[in-house]
Every structure is written in structure tokens, then in C-alpha cells.
Simulated assay, not measured.
Amino acid sequence: MQHGTEPPYQRIVARLRVAIAAGQLRPGDRVPSTRELMRSYNVAMATATKALNTLRQEGLVEPQPGIGTVVARRPRTRVTATPDGPAPLDRVVSTGIRLADTEGLAALSMRRLAAALGMPTMTLYRHVAGKEELLILMTDAVFGESPLPTADARARDWRAAVATSARLQWGVYRRHPWAAEVMSFTRPPMAERAMAHTEWNLAALERAGLPLPVAMHATIMLANHVRGTAVNLEWEAAAEQDTGVDNVEWFTAQEARFARITAGGQFPTMEKLAALGGDSVDYELDTIFEFGLTRLLDGLAALIG
């Protein structure tokens, strides 16, 4: 992710804070020393020292004689602003979501968010370490809008359970198209309520009889179908906003070009499909999502069966 003018020490703070919140670094675990941070992030000693001091001030780490700096055993809750001070963390996150919803993820920056909150950009860093942490918090918040059912529902029917998770994820992306761009399978954001979907599907598929490594591949496959379809949502919304033309009108406008391209006869099957009429295929993303989900579940049923 791009961090723009974000201070280098804030990037270090953000990564360590996320690792602590996700449980990758547990209470009592040693955190990287100043020199280790210097080597890992290619920063000066003053920058690495400032990062550790910031985490100490937040109560997330503490010095341990003979060991070094460790994750605090009783970390303090991050202090948010008083009613007369800058916006508290929940307002920062909700404003970030609103901006991403209305203006798109590309328009969201720490400077733009600070302006929307009516505060100096540097004051914003008192609440979030940078854009990376902001996006994790935003993702966690939007996935929390539609929580998963109880574990009892998951245990009854693996197919219904997995379909429930997929449709809830689709609903998140429908309401917040930018979230599909934030999600990644190579470097997934450590957002607890998004991670809950992975746990939900893994457990359902393991109970159905799949070995955990296979269940994990299946979970990634399903989530990738949802996200892969959803990445078109923000692009389509932006295109419609820029041109004033929806996808149906766009397809209609392409008919003459399509006819010229296919005139040579090299695409006979596509011509045959076009001859069936515009209503023969439903290109709506909801329909495409449901079609793909059903076929994937059919394939998993054969694998499990």
C-alpha cells in the first residue's frame, strides 16, 4: 500500500500495533529491538526509537529487564479524544468509510480524511498510525455490519453455512465496493470480523469431511469468487458517474462496433448468442455472483461426497 507522506516511524508503529491486535505478538512476547527495526525498515536509530516510544506511550509494550521490550501483559486501551478535542477513533473510521463509499478508495487519503474531520493531518495520527491501519479498521467495521449466525447454524449444513458466509460478504461489497479492493489473499488485512468468515468456512468444511489444507483452499476459492466479482462494483459505479451511462446503455452503444468485429465470421458462437436477443443472458453482477456460487458449491459437494 502507498503511504504517501506518512512519517516512517508511524509505519513501524502501525505494523507492530496490527501484529499485537491480531495476536501475532502476544503479551510477554519480545518485540523487535531498535537495531532490528533499523535493519528491517532501513531507518535511522532515532526513527526506530521513536516508534518504540510511541508504542510505550500507548501502553502496548513495556521494558522487561534482561529481555528487552515486550508486549505489555495488560495493555491500556488507546486513549481517544475528549469531547472538546479531536474526533474519537470511531468517528475517524466512520468518516473514512463515508468518504470511500462516496468518492472511492483512490480519493481517500490521510489529508482528505483530516479535512473532512476538520482537523490538522498530524492530529489524525493520534488515532491511527496511517492509511494501512485505517483501512484495516474500516474493513473490520463494515464486516461487522452483518455478523455471521451462531455456530449452531454452521454445524447443521455445510452448504448452507458456506453460502451464508458468501452472501454476507457479497452484501458487504455491495454496500461498500471499495472493500473488495482492500481485501487480499496474499497479504490479507488482519481485520477480526473479516477473519471470522475464514474461521466459519474452515470449520464448516472440516466438519463436512475435508482435510484442513483442502478446506483452506476451498475457503480461499469461495472468497475469491465473491471478491473477484465484487471488484467490478466500484469500477462500474465510477464509470457510470463519469459518463452518465449505465452498463445496459453502454452495451447498446457497442452494437455497431460488435457487428463490425464479428463481420468476418471469426466469432460464430458469439454471433449466435447475440442473435438470441439482449434478454437471453442476464449480465447483472448479482446474477453472475449467484451462478458462480452455486457451481462452486456443486463442485465442493462432489468433492465432499
Rank of each mutant, 00 (worst) to 15 (best):
N53I: 08
A191K: 01
L99D: 04
A160P: 04
W170R: 09
G305P: 03
V248Y: 09
K131F: 10
E103H: 12
E199L: 13
F185S: 06
D157P: 01
V245E: 13
K272C: 00
S165L: 06
D157G: 03
A253P: 01
Q64V: 07
G277N: 04
Q266K: 02
A239Q: 07
L113I: 00
L148Q: 08
D140Y: 10
A204G: 02
V231Q: 06
G277A: 04
P65Q: 00
R175D: 15
V281K: 13
L285E: 02
V31C: 08
A180V: 08
L296I: 08
R78S: 11
E103Q: 11
L25Y: 03
M221E: 13
T123G: 03
Q169R: 12
N42T: 15
V248A: 15
A218H: 03
E240F: 01
V13M: 06
P63N: 10
E206W: 04
M216Y: 15
R126T: 11
M110P: 01
E206R: 13
G118L: 04
A87H: 00
M1D: 12
R74Y: 08
A163K: 11
R11V: 12
T252S: 11
P268R: 00
D90H: 14
A51V: 10
A155I: 01
A87C: 03
M38H: 13
L293Y: 15
P213A: 10
P211S: 14
H217E: 11
D157T: 04
W200A: 06
R175V: 03
D84Y: 06
M122I: 07
E240R: 11
T294S: 11
E58L: 15
G209N: 04
T49G: 13
R73Y: 07
A301F: 01
R112S: 08
E284K: 09
W235Y: 14
D282W: 02
F289H: 07
V231S: 05
G118S: 06
D90V: 11
S33I: 07
A203K: 15
T243Y: 03
P149I: 12
A14H: 06
R30V: 11
T102P: 14
L222E: 08
M183E: 12
V226F: 06
I20C: 10
V79F: 11
G209C: 03
E240S: 07
D246W: 01
V79S: 15
Y125G: 05
P8H: 09
R15I: 02
T287G: 13
R174Y: 03
P188A: 03
T186L: 13
A106G: 11
T198L: 11
A196H: 10
M119V: 10
T219E: 09
L148Y: 15
D286N: 13
E6M: 07
D101Q: 12
T69F: 14
T69P: 02
L233G: 05
W200F: 07
R257P: 01
T150I: 11
E240M: 02
L117F: 06
A274N: 05
W235S: 15
R159G: 02
I304A: 02
Q2C: 09
L293W: 12
L52G: 00
A72F: 08
I12G: 04
R159N: 01
V93M: 06
L55C: 04
A208E: 05
R260K: 14
R207C: 05
H3E: 15
A196S: 14
T243A: 08
A116E: 12
M190S: 14
A256S: 14
Y283D: 10
V248S: 12
E6L: 09
Y125A: 02
P188D: 00
G118K: 02
V79C: 09
